[in-house]
Amino acid sequence: MLENKAASRYAKSLIDLANEQNSLEEIKNDMVLLDQVIDQSPELEAILNNPIVPLDKKAGILEQVFGAKVNAVTNIYLKLIVNKGRSAILFGTAKSFIQQYNALKGIVTAEVTSAIALTDANRAEIDALVKKEIGAKEVVIKEKVNDKLIGGFILKVGDKQFDASIASGLNKLKKEFAQGIV
Rank of each mutant, 00 (worst) to 15 (best):
A167R: 15
N146Q: 02
L149W: 01
D159N: 13
K142V: 15
I154Q: 11
K160Q: 13
K142W: 12
D159E: 09
L155A: 04
K156S: 13
V145K: 08
I154S: 07
K156T: 14
E143K: 13
I141H: 12
F162S: 07
N146E: 13
G151T: 08
S165D: 03
K144D: 11
I154M: 09
V157F: 09
F162L: 15
G151N: 08
A167K: 14
G152W: 08
A136S: 11
K144N: 14
G158S: 00
F153S: 05
K144I: 04
E143G: 10
G151M: 01
K160L: 11
V157N: 08
V139N: 09
D159G: 11
E133P: 01
A136Y: 05
K137I: 01
D159H: 12
A164G: 15
K156A: 12
E138R: 12
N146I: 02
A167I: 02
F153W: 06
K148N: 13
G152I: 02
K156Y: 07
V139P: 07
K156G: 09
K148R: 10
A136I: 00
K137G: 14
K131F: 08
G158K: 05
K148I: 02
N146A: 10
D147S: 11
F153I: 02
A167L: 12
E133K: 14
A167T: 09
D163S: 02
A136C: 00
V157Y: 09
K160H: 12
V145A: 01
K142P: 05
K142C: 12
N146R: 03
A164L: 13
K148D: 14
K160Y: 11
A167V: 00
L155W: 02
F153H: 08
E133I: 05
S165M: 04
G135F: 08
Q161G: 04
E143T: 15
K160M: 10
V140M: 11
F153R: 06
D147R: 09
K142F: 06
K131Q: 12
Q161Y: 04
I166A: 01
F153N: 02
E138Q: 15
K132N: 14
Q161C: 04
K144M: 09
G151F: 00
G152H: 08
V157A: 10
N146M: 05
L149E: 03
K137T: 13
G135V: 01
E133D: 10
E143P: 13
